[in-house]
Computed example of a mutant assay.
Amino acid sequence: MSDGDDHGFFGEGSLRPAPKTSEKSGKADARKHYEGHRERLRQRFDEAGVEALADYELLEMVLFRSVPRADTKGPAKELLNRFGSIGEVLGAPESRLREVPGIGEAAARDLKLVAALTQRMLRSQVRGKQVLSSWSQVLDYCRAAMAYEDREQFRILFLDKKNALIKDECQQTGTVDHTPVYPREIVRRALELSASAVILVHNHPTTPLQSHAGSR
């Protein structure tokens, strides 16, 4: 083989090292990835609606505004893994939400804002309807409002003679395993509201929500 051939075989072209990816370029590629993912989620939501998205994807979209420059898929999945469902994520205290990697103060606040809106919506759906004929709807509201609280609450739903909701109130907030209940206060408030029946609801922070119904 001639010197010319050797130069051609082992020349600079065959030994040129691959270009290194700069840190700045790597960050740009990562940003491009999650921005493209966000746009695809928005497009699916716009074109196919909420049923086209999994629960974690809905949480991702909620987090888009509060986590503008990072991938939100991991935090969204971890929220569901830790708390179990969207309802329990929204019902969790802010302090526990911030324990999830990627969930800071702004993200936790936005999740609690969604929870507040959900509670208002459920409350408006329940109010004025035949509560005892839509028991599951009442429980859904109560779970969203208090099932993941870290202290016991005692809530009362006041009903009229047609079993329609007049008002719901959190009468007492206790400790991690105790909340006081005063029957005279329940009766007094029921008389003030002219309630014909009441639904008493309380939670145990370490066990599922429990409820009891009764009439005055």
Rank of each mutant, 00 (worst) to 15 (best):
residue 76 A to M: 06
residue 93 P to R: 05
residue 185 E to P: 00
residue 112 K to W: 05
residue 111 L to Y: 08
residue 2 S to H: 03
residue 168 D to C: 13
residue 111 L to K: 07
residue 191 L to I: 10
residue 142 C to Y: 01
residue 154 F to G: 06
residue 23 E to K: 08
residue 209 L to D: 00
residue 46 D to Y: 15
residue 215 S to Y: 06
residue 111 L to G: 08
residue 102 G to S: 13
residue 99 E to W: 05
residue 143 R to Q: 14
residue 104 G to A: 06
residue 128 G to T: 03
residue 13 G to T: 13
residue 93 P to D: 02
residue 167 K to C: 07
residue 155 R to P: 03
residue 183 P to E: 08
residue 209 L to C: 01
residue 123 R to T: 14
residue 54 A to D: 14
residue 10 F to D: 12
residue 114 V to N: 02
residue 202 H to F: 06
residue 41 L to P: 06
residue 178 H to P: 01
residue 156 I to F: 06
residue 121 M to V: 13
residue 191 L to C: 09
residue 184 R to F: 07
residue 26 G to F: 06
residue 169 E to C: 05
residue 76 A to P: 10
residue 112 K to M: 08
residue 79 L to K: 01
residue 138 V to R: 00
residue 166 I to T: 11
residue 134 S to Y: 05
residue 54 A to V: 12
residue 98 R to Q: 13
residue 14 S to V: 15
residue 156 I to E: 04
residue 68 P to N: 14
residue 104 G to Y: 07
residue 104 G to P: 04
residue 87 G to D: 09
residue 120 R to V: 11
residue 21 T to A: 03
residue 20 K to E: 14
residue 28 A to K: 07
residue 129 K to T: 14
residue 50 V to W: 09
residue 70 A to F: 02
residue 124 S to L: 11
residue 3 D to A: 07
residue 108 A to F: 05
residue 153 Q to S: 14
residue 42 R to Q: 15
residue 169 E to W: 09
residue 188 R to L: 13
residue 148 Y to R: 13
residue 30 A to L: 14
residue 119 Q to G: 10
residue 19 P to H: 11
residue 51 E to C: 08
residue 176 V to Y: 01
residue 27 K to V: 04
residue 24 K to F: 02
residue 108 A to S: 10
residue 33 H to L: 15
residue 24 K to D: 03
residue 39 E to W: 04
residue 143 R to F: 06
residue 141 Y to L: 15
residue 109 R to M: 06
residue 78 E to Y: 00
residue 131 V to T: 11
residue 13 G to Q: 15
residue 68 P to E: 11
residue 72 T to D: 04
residue 21 T to P: 03
residue 13 G to A: 15
residue 7 H to P: 00
residue 186 I to Q: 02
residue 97 L to N: 09
residue 204 H to G: 01
residue 146 M to R: 02
